[in-house]
Design a protein around this nucleic acid. Structure first.
Lengths: 212, 212
DNA sequence: CCTATATCGATATTATAATATCGATATAGG
DNA sequence: CCTATATCGATATTATAATATCGATATAGG
């Protein structure tokens, strides 16, 4: 299933959702699972699900669907859950703390190796058994451990500086929670998590419901 | 600017990003701002930005662009930042705590009125001056205060139960951070925040960079 | 063994979003 | 005052994603 055809971003976003749903089923009771039933459970179109699954597996059988355990493995393998992704987190404030304490990352085999901050008061402390280090140790650690993922949970005003530092340290993928557009070299990807965008959708819906 | 033509979800998501960028500029120095310059700053296509802005304002002038202060007001007004949105948060764990302590919500005029949890140890405590209440007080408070937005930061296993309770309490918009598909009546909107989807994009990019 | 049917995979169609093009216009600069 | 130009808004085109359709096939059930 190596990418003969490039996979769409939308499909990529849905794969973890399918995986999560599959894992929520009792594995003893299910042998075969069809795209149709997944679609029904998640409120999606069945052709959409089938097409998405075709990106990771070609083992679907007419009338039956996919072998449950096999499908899980194929999705996990496609998403790279086979190998651990190590990352660093910069900004040990409230949000950063929440991430350091969040157990759910293990599902995705994402490991936060260490946290960094510039506040002398938190440097040297541990949060959920993870060390908070001074920012000036970032580059050395990333290079030594070949860290490729950086999580930015600092305030907007510091985000670009932190971003530059991460890029300089060899990080290739940045997960950005600061509400700002980061400038990065072409080879680095930035995934922005924007609270405002989500709220806009919610609030638009609300005003439709309430004032119309 | 009332919605004569329906606005696309993608446009809606970008509006807060434009707004945030505009607010980051020094207002004394800018009188006019063009779609072209916004597009350039954010790495977007200028026609896209212009079309997005056309949804909230028709005051653009050829050669000049938009009056800076006016544009900000028009976006804010469109996004409903004029009136405060009150909400409740359910699940005072790590992520819930981070939200309760997050100051950024005020930008969007989102106010978390109170938090709810079922853990006796946190009920009655305060987090960032916000009370943590027992779940059985949820319905009464939501009805009394006409709360329409609910934020779910409980574990996956409890999310549907909490969701049902929120819906029963009159909530119309649910911001869901549990990695699960929530079943809701048609009139309720759910905005899912899925960590796995974002990670999938990052990790896909990484493997392209590293192994090809 | 035969038939009905659920589902697959492939292809065709439709819907949605992004981008390109172009005439109109407001002003800056000579 | 005149001309060049940046930008607007509208429309046309292209790209991307979602959905519909259809033949093939595996099995369940008679």
């Amino acid at each position: 299933m190596e990418d003969t055809k490039p996979i769409s971003v939308q499909t990529l976003k849905r794969l973890p959702i399918y995986l999560n749903y599959l894992k929520s089923l009792k594995k003893d009771e299910v042998v075969y699972i069809s795209a149709t039933s997944i679609a029904h459970a998640l409120g999606l179109n069945d052709v959409q699900v089938r097409k998405d699954l075709a990106a990771v597996s070609d083992k679907g059988k007419p009338k039956l669907g996919y072998v449950f355990a096999e499908l899980i493995m194929d999705i996990e393998s496609y998403l790279g859950y086979d190998n651990i992704h190590t990352s660093v987190l910069v900004g040990a404030g409230n949000l950063g703390r929440a991430f350091l304490c969040y157990h759910g990352f293990s599902t995705y085999n994402l490991e936060i190796v260490a946290a960094f901050d510039k506040d002398e008061n938190v440097i040297g402390s541990n949060i959920n058994k993870k060390q908070v280090l001074s920012l000036n140790k970032l580059k050395n650690l990333c290079e030594r451990m070949k860290i490729k993922i950086g999580i930015i949970t600092v305030p907007e005003s510091e985000a670009q500086t932190v971003c530059d530092l991460l890029v300089e340290s060899g990080v290739l993928a940045i997960w950005n929670f600061a509400p700002i557009n980061l400038n990065v070299p072409e080879e680095v990807i930035v995934q922005n998590e924007n609270i405002g965008s989500s709220l806009a959708i919610l609030s638009q819906h609300l005003s439709e419901k309430l004032y119309k």
